[in-house]
Design a protein around this nucleic acid. Sequence first.
DNA 1: ATAAAATATGAAACGCGTTTCAGAGCAAGA
DNA 2: TCTTGCTCTGAAACGCGTTTCATATTTTAT
Lengths: 319, 319
Amino acid sequence: MTNIKDLAKMAGVSVTTVSRVLNEHPYVSEKKRMAVLEAIKATNYHKNINAVHLSKGNTLLMGVVLPFTGHPYFASLLKGIARIALEHDYKLVLFQTDYLESRELDALLMLKEKQIDSLIICSRACSLATIEEHLHYGSIVLCENIKREQISTTFVNHYSVFFEALEYLYQKGHQKIGYCIGRRSGSSSKKREQAYKDFLVKYDLHFRPEYIMDNCLYVEDAEKIIKELKTMEVPPTALLVTNDQIAAGVVTCCHNEGIAIPDELAIIGFDNQPIAKMMNITTIDIPHEQMGENLFLQAVGEEISHTEVKVKLIERGTV
Amino acid sequence: MTNIKDLAKMAGVSVTTVSRVLNEHPYVSEKKRMAVLEAIKATNYHKNINAVHLSKGNTLLMGVVLPFTGHPYFASLLKGIARIALEHDYKLVLFQTDYLESRELDALLMLKEKQIDSLIICSRACSLATIEEHLHYGSIVLCENIKREQISTTFVNHYSVFFEALEYLYQKGHQKIGYCIGRRSGSSSKKREQAYKDFLVKYDLHFRPEYIMDNCLYVEDAEKIIKELKTMEVPPTALLVTNDQIAAGVVTCCHNEGIAIPDELAIIGFDNQPIAKMMNITTIDIPHEQMGENLFLQAVGEEISHTEVKVKLIERGTV
DNA sequence: ATAAAATATGAAACGCGTTTCAGAGCAAGA
DNA sequence: TCTTGCTCTGAAACGCGTTTCATATTTTAT
């Protein structure tokens, strides 16, 4: 395999000059430049990028940590990241964690070992302390509502979003409101739960633990939700659903089971995915792609910032 | 930043010995090993992985080229790849191409420059010749039904699958069958089209160009499909739909428009996604995750192979 | 007891592009 | 004319871990 030294010999110049040509530095005479370019063409030369990485100390590789890629929420985030990464000549290294801390540690290790320049953690299982330990190896950005001095974040204020959704349902006459959630231990789920509890207190409503349904991650969990609803003596009249995909599943199930929407059960989804529009599901628009872009920019940028993204209730037919 | 040389000095050994300890080579005395380990602990040392890459000539990085990550078909493929990559200590570099050849060339360039060891191309826009030019830089595997000596492939026989689906519909009494497709110029689409034409010939059916609907990639394209159907003087009585997501959209639209399924319009989806089960859509099960795994194994393996995966018609309520 | 094999260790070469530094040549401004 | 200040060039150092080779010391086998 040809290397820069060979080129130098062929073109009758120094390796420095070859490097200059390769990197389009000025201060190379046209004559030598041509000689080098010819040598490059003749040998079909290309850089060994690993040598470049070693030398420069960076790789233009950005790590992206997410639990699942198939999940529409993360897919949209990833799409946004990918689009802007392209513009900035970054490539993405994917860490699909399934919420296993060990996989996140893999990513942090790669940062430490300089294989990636920075890291976007879309959803986190490891502790903040662990992340902070790795901050000086490269920038790490998070997609959650926390404000540390050293860590940039882009987030949805799940507390207020959830609270507003609940208020909306209350205004529509609902007092028995349940919700389902992907992973109750997650940081945004906790904010939602807090909002839920505060809402109940505000309107002096009774707390029914069975109204919170955990582990609703996939379309197929919709069946589980409806089944559970049917076992309840006092079922909720409205449901906030993890996301639109699952909301679509719930709507379909209700259809199958003869539950009228919104009369017997009102539904609000999250994310404003195409399926929600198609099935006329009331939902909350969250600009995921834009969030992805922002995360990327924070990761490559110098300053620390905390960006709260704006969301919007989309009123449709399921409330 | 500490390096291996510093460690050697601290531990009073040679860099070779340090390297041996780091890589768990045998032939290091317990005493020296301990000394090195202590130095490592004291300095919080970690390898500069780029130096390792340069030295070893590989990166344990696998490129994955796909047009969109959000698309359920590619998401499943990716999921399969990710799972097995983890087992093999490989990390994935994602190339989201949007079917732009330039992005695929990016990936091929990374292979050439040794930043990735091998490349899985899930869907291709560039020419086979271009791919073949890059084969000696690392292995490249494809996810389509072609059989070149140098390129491993894992594929669905879209021709026979499509043909069988058409036969199934024919047996059910359908003679006016349309289909929609993601990207008509794609290689699998061409096989489907051939199957479609051969089917028409076999049963002496009339070819109606409007029965082939191109560019159906997302759920929201379902509306377009139904709209088009309604403009036809002789609309098809059955539709093979790109995938289950879109099929779900079509079913929903038909619902909205009062088109009875399967009586007025029969539907067959592809992929056997959860949504199809939920909505009771007849579909064709394609083991994407398994395909992903196989692609990965082919990419890291030595021999060239061509694997045809088995698919299965899942009879449900839309035919 | 002696040859053969295994264990242990380090110097040096290797992978390869980038960057700093020193210096030469030449033109523009004082 | 002399001083700046560009333009152009290359030697050498740098980033850093791996691997080969030569050598020395022990063990094991015969």
